[in-house]
Design a binder for these strands. Structure first.
Lengths: 264, 264
DNA sequence: TGCTTGAGCTCGCGA
DNA sequence: TCGCGAGGTCAAGCA
């Protein structure tokens, strides 16, 4: 902890902010504030007690007492500006965070500040996640039979005018197969698959099959899919994760997901 | 500020957490920790200094020194569990946050804690945002001419077998018009519009035009749209917001977006 | 830098 | 409770 101020005078807080709103520091401010945003949209947030966090990449978050998501934010900031202002005899501290591309401003007006802390957080660890969609891709590439007996993979991430096809292949009767993989398929997923099938039909000779590969699907979306003569193949995410860990083990000698990292 | 502990002993920290991991309190913990998650996917995060925030709705965030998004989180938690553990002579504090539906666990293992604070944040203000997609709808209804001279609106949110049409109308030559409004149009938007047009052509007599209304579009998607004989009309979000504010003013006597809330 | 898509998406609305 | 779509989506990967 580089600095910790409790109930500072706003001028005192301004001094600390002026010195520490740079890339090397993480700054937290607890206080009573109003927030305005203007840019891609426009928002206002009246008086309330919130946490403002300025991270070391200048990303800035205004968190209320509820919810995962911040009330206001700036993903990465080009410039900060701090000033104090007297409004009707009351002193306020104003923190403005601006960026271009897109052009946006967040303005936080503090009436009271309860706490300011400054840190240099050291965190060199990378987050490792398994169970992403790409893990299903890997899993198919590793063992195409999980989709269908005799499937041959021709290309991954095949580019078409309508976008990228996840997996492109042929079945054992030499029909083209377009595979769209999705963890959480929705109506758009079906349209997307349709889009790819249309493109391949335009460009290639012969029959084209479109297959959605997902761990689950709702009845309505399954109907929607089958109405368009598309197919559905279910995969088990547990198996996908397990198979990935097996590969991981054999390749690196040691899994990133050893038992000692379990949540039990 | 209800409580503030600097560099507490882990047992001391545990005592404070046991008392305050309930809905009424916001708890912040700065410390050196590892984090594991298991549920819809699986993740692990090695040692690093992070901020853990437990909000008053039990939402829990683990923020690293960078990025808008937390490294790990739990949107709303069903139960917390705190314990201390001796591993190879080192005492650790373990915070487990679990929820069902979906079944997920986040486990944070602290080796050191720099700071614990407990607050009851009071924030009754509602965030007010303008510039959503629905504001464009309003804007079109208010003044159809922004799309095209002589446009008559027949129906909003018109149901078809392919989904809901944002705006359905007629042009001055009595052709049907299907309008799809989108802040961030993509390829699927085009296919969706196409499907609505197809539905209307099936069901109605006469020519049918499909119009995408958006504040911006990429060249490729514009091509994709024009290949399908669909049209694009650009709207200026500034105008949409301004017109909304004008309506707001006239209806409520006072805008929610007065000049004193500007970001200047 | 821009384009495209996934995300443990989250969140709110509606049936 | 679940399905569905928007988001100031963000962020990663690739051209």
């Amino acid at each position: 902890m580089d600095t910790l101020l409790q109930n500072p005078d706003l001028s005192e807080a301004k001094k600390v902010l002026d010195e520490h709103l740079r890339r090397e520091f993480t700054v937290q401010i607890n206080g009573l504030c109003t927030v305005n945003y203007q840019g891609r949209a426009k928002s206002k947030l009246d008086r309330g007690e919130r946490l403002v966090i300025k991270k070391q990449d200048t990303a800035t978050l205004v968190h209320g007492p509820e919810n995962y998501q911040p009330k206001n934010w700036q993903p990465e900031v080009d410039s900060f500006n701090v000033k104090t202002e007297k409004i009707e005899g009351e002193k306020h501290l104003i923190l403005k965070a601006e960026r271009t591309n897109p052009e946006e401003v967040v303005k936080v007006r503090f009436e009271e500040i309860d706490l300011v802390t400054v840190d240099k957080l050291i965190d060199k660890s990378e987050l490792k996640v398994r169970g992403h969609e790409v893990d299903i891709h890997e899993s198919i590439e590793e063992n195409p039979d999980i989709i269908e007996d005799g499937l041959t993979i021709v290309e991954r991430e095949k580019e078409t005018p309508a976008g990228f096809i996840d997996v492109f292949g042929r079945d054992k009767k030499d029909r083209w197969i377009v595979i769209e993989v999705k963890r959480n398929p929705d109506y758009n997923t079906i349209l997307q698959l349709q889009r790819y099938v249309d493109e391949i039909e335009k460009e290639y000779q012969g029959e084209v099959r479109g297959i959605l590969v997902a761990p689950k699907i709702t009845d309505k979306i399954l109907d929607y899919l089958q109405d368009r003569d598309l197919e559905y193949v279910e995969v088990d995410m547990e198996n996908v994760i397990a198979s990935y860990e097996a590969i991981d083990n054999s390749q690196k000698g040691l899994s990133d997901f050893d038992a000692d990292y379990s949540v039990d």
